[in-house]
Design a protein around this nucleic acid. Structure first.
Lengths: 195, 195, 195, 195
DNA sequence: TATGAATGAGCTTTCATTCAT
DNA sequence: GATGAATGAAAGCTCATTCAT
């Protein structure tokens, strides 16, 4: 199962693309193989199973994401700046691994019940801790409004950011940073015009 | 195919529940039948295929939704009030048909390529027209900020509302109207504390 | 998985026949289905898997065998009569379930490592206890020779009986009881002519 | 296909070991290669197929066996001494090629229908001729009992000897010759104590 | 001599669907 | 209205084998 890393990555990228486009279940192993220019059986030289491809895609994404998040969280920023940095890193990750994010979005919920994908639930918990904690700190430090339900705000922010993977196309007219800036502006200031 | 309407509705509700929990593809007809207390083959007395169950669930949801939306859009409200009404109706619909909304969220994108589900794409277009139009009117009438990309704002709003179906539980601590009010407050005013 | 018992038994008998003739691994599910007059997939209405057919065949055989053995062992016979009765019951079982015995013979050794087939090993242990015990009792009571290695004698007897399944054909010229009588005569008296 | 004979023999011994332990069909070429410290494809430098390994194992065993048997049969012994010599040679062969004998035992029956393995059937015939002939000669010469079915006696002897391969471990507490002596004692004199 | 990568045929299994009863 | 049994297509996966390097 350990092959030339480049070929693995190629196949994995192909698989991610197809999974994201058609859904994991609806994707046949044959379809991935076609897209990778080989026969279905040949995939099994590189990977144990369809599921293990999914696993690598998802864990690869989460590992990278958490490396960035941890850097942000460890750098001693204030609540508002932390939120800004997390949102920006999220959009950058969507830019880097759009397919993985889209798959995560669609499949994480039922996958996390399987032992193999327990790390999805674990990540979810860490995620909540990081965002919710920052929001609460912001309320305490009078950076954020106190009249909003924090959990609701958390979900709002979280969903808002990740759902973007469903329409985002890398190389489009807005850079990830630009999208992040606009999102943050909406979330932080609201869309109402103030004069 | 025409049976006592209550039995149909029961089965449909069951199917929606399972589809929402496991995904359409991953749901077997047998699982639905189990949950409905019958054998798999017996479902075919009421419906002619698994796909037609999905179809009824989705179109039932969209028909209801558009009846409400059309009422809002035809009532001559200003842009801000229109947005408020649409968001509120959306959360009410999530409250009424949580499963259908969750299914829609997950499956609409690839279903809309099939002729049978072309109405999903059509609805999407109408949807965009309604929301985007309202936002543009709001910018023109100086109700909304002009410095934000309107398409981005549209997507932001749209996603934000519907994704809620993934965590919303009817009968929870917040009523749909209360959730709508908080969401609107965030979107319209932002989460930043202003003194 | 619970269907009309007659159909199950029919299919099981067919499967046993094919397993015995070609070996478990070499037998395809399609071949069993062909012989049973159905399509491969249809077997799965009645059974969970190819392995579960094997399981039922083997456990059915062992259950029946042990019912008979236990009756013999509990009836207070002397060592020689016990051996005679066990051998006779064994040949009767071969007559009744030739295929199952042949499969057992060929496959038991490697199957017993799998948890599902642990009962094969358990049966083996009980088996040894019964036969070896009887032989030892026979030696103690001066019914059997003391100059032979008892374990060797045990293996000799055990193998000798069961291997017969590989050539025995029900309805042949000798009844199971007649074969048992000849086998016993050889084992007990030897083949040497004494005058 | 012609390589250093030592490497071939090594691989063949490895293959025989795995075949004997797991069964021919259940053994993958990769498993053999693993055990031989190479990759699956590399085996094909030495052998042209999995089947040809089996072929060499089996024919190697039979050739050696027949060389010994022929020596015994050509040496003009009486029936009892012939049986004794054949049994002894058989146990020596089990000692030398335990795996091959075990494979033979399990696979010969269905292999012999394939043209490639027709020699298995031929050997079987020769075998029967030698043993059955000796037994008949023994009955005629009043060395063996006349009241036993000779064919049954033949099968009894044959099976009894070869099945030992399934439990025999070279280097165990009994030498092949010792095992042969005990077996012969049982078969010739019976296990009953005579005073 | 051996490796790494691929092939292709065939395997067990799943599942939506049908239909006589 | 529902059951029990079967169909048939397609799925994921295995594995002996090939072959350029």
């Amino acid at each position: 199962m350990n092959t030339a890393p480049e070929r693995r990555e190629e196949i994995l990228a192909t698989a991610a693309e197809v999974f994201a486009a058609q859904g994991y279940r609806a994707t046949t192993v044959r379809r991935i193989a076609d897209a990778a220019g080989m026969l279905a059986g040949s995939l099994y030289y590189h990977f144990d199973s369809k599921e293990s491809m999914l696993d690598e895609i998802l864990s690869g994404f989460l590992n990278e994401l958490w490396a960035r998040y941890d850097a942000v969280l460890g750098s001693g920023l204030g609540p508002r700046e932390t939120i800004e940095a997390l949102v920006t890193e999220s959009f950058r990750e969507i830019d880097r691994r759009r397919d993985a994010v889209a798959i995560y979005q669609k499949e994480a919920r039922h996958l996390q019940d399987q032992p193999r994908f327990a790390y999805l639930a674990a990540s979810q918990v860490k995620f909540e801790k990081a965002w919710l904690g920052t929001l609460e700190r912001g309320v305490a430090e009078r950076a954020f409004r106190a009249d909003l339900d924090v959990r609701l705000t958390y979900r709002f922010l979280r969903d808002t950011v990740w759902v973007a993977a469903s329409w985002y196309r890398p190389g489009g007219q807005h850079s990830p940073e630009e999208i992040a800036r606009q999102y943050l502006s909406m979330v932080l200031e609201g869309i109402t015009l103030r004069e």
